[in-house]
Design a protein around this nucleic acid. Structure first.
Lengths: 244, 244
DNA sequence: ACAAAAGTGTTAGTGATACACCCATGA
DNA sequence: TCATGGGTGTATCACTAACACTTTTGT
C-alpha cells in the first residue's frame, strides 16, 4: 500500500540550489513551407553576436515569466513578422558548449505554413529573412543544421498519419501538387493512379468546379481540404494514413 | 541567391544577456514497467523541499557541463539505482511557476524496462522507491501527473510501430502475455487468433521448446524476441506494425 | 499536329476481420 | 472429470500494387 501525501511547496529556496540557477534557455522555430515543388525553411540573418551575420533559425531567449509556447510565438513574430502560426514542440537541444555565452538549452518548435499567406519581414534582431531551399542549406549558426534535420525527420513521419500536407499547400490545389509535396518530403516517387485513388477515397478533399489557369497543357482540377469533415471522421475513430 | 557566412562565435558575452542566465533546468524520468498484467511507473518519495515526502518522478537538476541525456542517466542512477536504461527524450515542460524556487524547465525522458531486471533502491534524495500502478496514481509533486499522461500517450502511439512491447516483458514470454501488454496499454481488447497470426507472421519472435511452469491449466509455449532479425528486416525497409 | 500533363479501370495478391471448436494440464 | 486458459483454420472483405492508354489544353 502506497500513501500519497502531497503538500503545497514552501517558497523558501535553499541556498545550495543557487548554483543551478545560472542557465538560460531559448526557443528556435523551424518553419517549413512548400513552393515551386520544393520544401523550404524560413531563416533569418542574425543581427547580433554570436554568429552575427550568419543565417539561423528564428529563435531567441525566453523571458523569465513566459511560457515556452508563448515565447516561441512571440520570438517568431518579433523576428519574422509571422503571426497566428500553429507551433508544435519538437525537441530540446542542450549540449554543453552549444552557445558561447554560457549554458543555453533550446526548445525547438516547428510548423508548416502556406508561403503565400505571409510576407516575412526582418524585424528585431534580424538583418534579413528568407525562405531557403532545404536541399541547398549552407552552414547555419549554432546547432541549427542539426535542429532542421530533426524537424525534417519529424515531418517525414508526421505526414504519414496526419493530413499536415494540406497546411503547406494553398487552399486550392491540384492532386499533382499534393503528390509532389509528398514526394519531395519523402524523397520518393509515388504512383499517380494509386495515390489519387487513396486520397480521394478518404472523402477529405472536395473537388471544385475550377481548374488551373495559365498552363500550356490540359489544366488540372482544383480541390480543397475539408477540415470540418476531417475533424468529424477523426472523432469517429478514422485514421488518416498515406503510405510511402 | 543566398550567401552563407558563418564564422566561429566570439566568446565575449554582452552584458545585456546577463538577465537571461538565471534559470535552471532539470530532467525527469518516466520509467514504465509491466507486471501482474498492469502497467507501472517508477516513482520516488522525495527527500527534500519542495514537495518533501511527496511521490514524484525520479528527476533532478542538470549540472552546468552535463549533456541532457547524460544527466537523465545519472539522475536515474543516483535516485533509483537503475543503470543501463535506454532513455528517450519525451517533451519539455516549462510553465512559469511550475517550480517554487525560480524558473525551472524540465526535460522529460521516458523508458521501458523489464521489472525483473532491476531492484530499485532509494539512494540520494530519495526516501523510498517503488513501482506504482498507473491506474491508481495519486497526486504527485510538481506537474508530474501531467508528464506521466504525456508519456503514456507517447507509449500508446509508439507500441504501434516499434516493437517496444518486448522491452517490457521478460526475455521469455507467452503470446498471451504480449497480448495483455498491448491490451493494457491501449485499454482495449484484441482478438486472440488474429493477434497471434499477425505477430507470428512477422517472424520476429522465436518459439522455444519450453513452456510455462506452475499454472493450473495447459501451459503456454514460451517465445523470445529475435532482435537481430528485427534489425536486419528494418534495414531492408520492413515496418513493424500492430493495429488496435 | 504536337507536346505535356491530366485523368481513369482492372486484375492479382496481400492483409484484416470475424468466427467456434478441440487440447493439455492441474486440481 | 472438470475448470481453465492454450491453441488453431477458413471464408470474406478491403486495401495495395502494378500496369497503359485516352483526354484536354496551349502552342
Amino acid at each position: 500500500m502506497v500513501f500519497y501525501l502531497c503538500q503545497k511547496p514552501f517558497v523558501e529556496p535553499e541556498s545550495h540550489f543557487d548554483s543551478y540557477f545560472k542557465s538560460a534557455f531559448t526557443v528556435d522555430n523551424v518553419i517549413f513551407g512548400f513552393d515551386e515543388g520544393a520544401l523550404k525553411v524560413l531563416l533569418i540573418r542574425r543581427n547580433e553576436a554570436p554568429f552575427e551575420d550568419c543565417w539561423a533559425l528564428p529563435g531567441h531567449f525566453v523571458r523569465q515569466n513566459e511560457d515556452l509556447d508563448e515565447a516561441a510565438r512571440r520570438v517568431l513574430w518579433e523576428m519574422t513578422g509571422l503571426e497566428n502560426v500553429y507551433l508544435e514542440q519538437l525537441f530540446t537541444f542542450g549540449a554543453p558548449g552549444r552557445h558561447a555565452y554560457g549554458r543555453v538549452i533550446t526548445v525547438a518548435y516547428y510548423s508548416l505554413v502556406k508561403i503565400a499567406d505571409f510576407t516575412p519581414q526582418a524585424l528585431t534582431l534580424t538583418r534579413e529573412v528568407a525562405w531557403h531551399d532545404l536541399t541547398t542549406l549552407g552552414e547555419l549558426a549554432f546547432d541549427h543544421n542539426e535542429i532542421i534535420v530533426t524537424a525534417r525527420d519529424q515531418l517525414q513521419r508526421s505526414i504519414r498519419n496526419r493530413p499536415v500536407g494540406f497546411e503547406l499547400l494553398p487552399p486550392e490545389f491540384t492532386l499533382t501538387q499534393l503528390q509532389h509535396l509528398y514526394e519531395s518530403i519523402w524523397e520518393t516517387k509515388l504512383e499517380k493512379r494509386n495515390f489519387r485513388k487513396k486520397i480521394l477515397s478518404m472523402d477529405l478533399i472536395l473537388p471544385l468546379n475550377r481548374t488551373q489557369k495559365g498552363v500550356s497543357h490540359r489544366p488540372a482540377r482544383l480541390y480543397r481540404f475539408d477540415e470540418t469533415r476531417y475533424r468529424k471522421l477523426t472523432r469517429e475513430g478514422f485514421n488518416f494514413e498515406v503510405k510511402g
